[in-house]
Amino acid sequence: MSVSVREVAARAGVSVGTVSNVLNRRDAVRPATVERVERAIDELGYVPNDAARQLRAGQSTTIALVVLDIGNPFFTDVARGAEERAVESGYTLLLANSDDSVERESAHLDQFERQRVAGVLVVPTSSAQPRVSQLRAHGVPVVLVDRGTADATLASVAVDDVEGGRLAAEHLLSQGRRQLVFVGGPEDLPQVQDRSAGAHSAVGAVEGAGILHVPTAALTLDDGMSAGAEVRALVRAGRCDAVLAANDLLAIGVQQALLSGPDPVGIPREVALVGYDDISFAAAAVVPITSVRQPRRVMGATAVDLLLREAGLAPAAAREHVVFQPELVVRASSTVPAPPDAPA
């Protein structure tokens, strides 16, 4: 239960106006009174910027969403689903882009807390989430998006990325491919870790199969094109007959790199290709790309639903952890079996 200004005033033996002055114009209050009020604040655990209390009282109608890369159509679709559900519920959605930067993420969260938003949806930049913990300690409801968590008191919406990586790799293996390459990074990003783990699990279950990792600095089209040069060298050296990219932008970049130049690599004749997310550009690629589909708009809408339920829960109560199952969408980039003379 949130502590009110009236409770602080009663504990300190002063008026509500005096508490307000201590919080906003402390130079207008005698030092002894300031000390008494601050002691009451500490004893009661009062948080001036209590957005959860505002949400219960119906005073705030703004929800914030912080994503890793607004240029990625995956996050655009998540945001669209969140906005649609927010509007249906009488709220406005503010969108911010962290650009996979911890500093930018923190700056956005600081600003949203100052604006006293009703709550925050965040795709966190790392597994460590100190700023998220601070927000919640200050009474701001938070839901993690596209990220699971072991914290039972923190709500989350995610997709089973380990299963997604496994599905993609099993499909490639079923096509006779045995020399897989996983393209993706940063390596500390949980989604990349989980998708890689799923792929490694599938490969490990097939005798004679192997998997290499081509790391990238980010999950962008340009990073995919850069990785494509390394993939090309592996293909020509007989060390790669299939590629699993950590997302579709990387997959599209890899495809462009492989198909360009004086010595193009045949897709899927020489190398099969699978992406992740199933954004619209994957289906529209020169060679339509097989991809692991995530319910992007549903994820955004579900995150808003969870957030709007947050205000009615006690601080220590267990939150909901919604985990969707991925779906493999097979297209031309992976459906031709490896040629008989392909490396085993």
Rank of each mutant, 00 (worst) to 15 (best):
S196N: 12
G208T: 08
Q129S: 12
I211N: 00
H213W: 02
A168S: 08
D241A: 00
L189M: 12
L258H: 05
G253P: 10
D188R: 14
F182K: 12
I211W: 05
Q175M: 15
A209F: 04
L167F: 11
G139C: 10
Q191K: 11
R195Q: 10
A202G: 01
T149S: 05
L221H: 15
L259T: 00
V254G: 05
A199P: 00
A137R: 13
L144Y: 10
Q134N: 09
L144I: 04
L244P: 02
T153K: 11
R136Y: 09
P190T: 10
E187W: 09
L144F: 12
V162P: 00
G165C: 08
A128P: 01
A168E: 09
R136E: 08
P264C: 05
A217P: 01
P141A: 05
A245V: 05
P190C: 05
I267Y: 00
G253L: 04
S133N: 12
V140E: 06
V145G: 10
A245N: 07
E187D: 15
S226G: 09
V181S: 06
D241V: 01
G164Y: 08
R131I: 12
A128R: 15
D151A: 14
E270K: 03
L249K: 00
A155F: 11
H200A: 15
V145R: 04
L273R: 02
R166L: 02
D263F: 01
